[in-house]
Nucleic acid binder design. Structure first.
Lengths: 267, 267
DNA sequence: GAGTATGAAATCGTATACGATCCATTGTTA
DNA sequence: TAACAATGGATCGTATACGATTTCATACTC
């Protein structure tokens, strides 16, 4: 066994490369999964595979490629001025992150967003974001809380001027402030993925539930007060999860016109 | 915008392909991420890309490629009797699922498992597995509970005969019974990924904490009683999460010989 | 002797080429 | 006319080829 290890020996120190101690938090984050792509070093001209990955992902998130949209390899390759091979690799990565679905000998299309998917994503996000916010709480400074409160004020402003797009953007910003200090990068990554998933639903029917926005702003304020009061991580987690679950319930009540508890598996 | 959509028109019903209703739970699961690869249809000879993916993943999980192991594209391609291209795609998928790390112009190596990683993974698993178990609880039948109890009995047997490998396997089986009925495939997928991550730590130093195994079996029994008593999903979630957190604490206490609460961010 | 240039080998990255597969359409038959 | 089989074009899957980059080992300078 371990045939390869004994060949072409000298390069690479074989054996477990215990790279990085406690500080190396970024090591396990899948690259490029952050909601806001963290300022890229941009040293060498990025590999074409990487370019393709980012380009396609951006277009999905921006809505240029809407759900169900057919992605043809050759066409993408042409648009990017590269050959098909790097595009295939990009597609594979995007598939693994469920930005799109891929079928053998058929091709790729942008991941669907049927209502069921929305439910699943929101529920998952309620759990991981709740946990992330709870874990993040002890690290939040007064300045953080202040910043969050400012954002929430701006959201209140959006209500007056009826600017749902900006409202949604600010909403992500608000929550980012609260969960971004979560010290566990895995959990943080899951939260980012969840939000990314939801981002591609913008301009879809899911986003706006009448009245929910106003309620949401108030819940934000309550959450901030909880944090200021030095609540336990557990309480914060529960509140954050509840906030998201409430949005989901509002969506369900609105779309089905029936009580949310008709979905028995929601906590 | 949406240039591609208007070309080569006829094929594919363009527009959102709302594929599948509530029943189509598998649609969003990244293929092949299950802990136990669900019986493959094996219709056409799997694409070489897929073969490569599974082969490499298996070898990582089985420990044949241990952490830090260098994966050379050409070598893998040779071993599988394919060219480099499909192997690259497999690598990309595995990278996105963080089975391995990949560096531009350098290559891939099996993902590391430094203690910090272990902590992060366990903590994440405590959260998502706890949630999955809680959501799964209402769907568990008496037969399921019985099966779990049988498995737990077998685990108790392993304690007598000192069979830690089998113990670990059974441990996964036990918990699988309890979380596998979680109706949210996203969450379930996260749980599978977490367990997969841990699987590659077998034969590593992390697995065995003296005394913890016996305690674990008892906690299992308590969890089963909770389920039989018709506890709320919330209680079950809390118990399941606590069970895993306790394992993590035991590891921390054992490895550092200091109190677990020296890690302030654990719930 | 320590540190730095240089060259060769290994390996990765991408383009191109071509066979394999699928889908939609057309043509055929009961 | 409805069901079915043949056909053709579009697209995917993979092999091969070759340039680009990194890494290691040696030779050289201070």
């Amino acid at each position: 066994m371990n045939v390869a290890e004994t060949t072409t020996a000298a390069r690479w120190t074989a054996g477990p490369a215990a790279a990085g101690g406690v500080g190396s938090r970024a090591v396990a984050m899948a690259p490029g999964t952050a909601v806001a792509p963290a300022a890229a070093p941009a040293r060498s001209p990025l590999s074409k595979s990487q370019q393709a990955y980012e380009s396609i992902k951006d277009k999905i998130l921006s809505g240029e490629y809407s759900p169900g949209y057919r992605l043809v390899l050759a066409k993408l390759a042409d648009e990017l001025g590269v050959s098909a091979v790097p595009v295939r690799e990009a597609i594979r990565r995007l598939e693994a992150e469920s930005f799109l679905t891929f079928e053998r000998n058929v091709g790729a299309s942008v991941a669907g967003i049927d209502p069921t998917e929305y439910l699943y994503t929101m529920q998952t996000l309620s759990i991981v974001e709740g946990a992330a916010t709870g874990l993040s709480a002890p690290f939040l400074t007064a300045a953080d809380i202040g910043r969050a409160r400012d954002i929430n004020a701006a959201m209140r402003g959006c209500l007056e001027h009826f600017d749902p797009v900006r409202f949604t953007t600010l909403n992500l910003e608000f929550h980012s402030v609260l969960f971004e200090k979560c010290p566990n990068p895995h959990i943080l990554d899951l939260v980012h993925r969840g939000w990314n998933r939801l981002r591609s639903l913008r301009s879809s029917t899911f986003n706006y539930v009448p009245g929910r926005a106003r309620e949401s702003v108030e819940e934000h304020e309550r959450l901030l007060q909880l944090l200021e009061g030095g609540a336990t991580a557990d309480d914060v987690e529960r509140a954050a999860r509840g906030h998201r679950t409430a949005t989901l319930d509002a969506y369900l009540a609105h779309s089905r016109n029936e009580a949310p508890d008709s979905v028995p598996w929601l906590p």
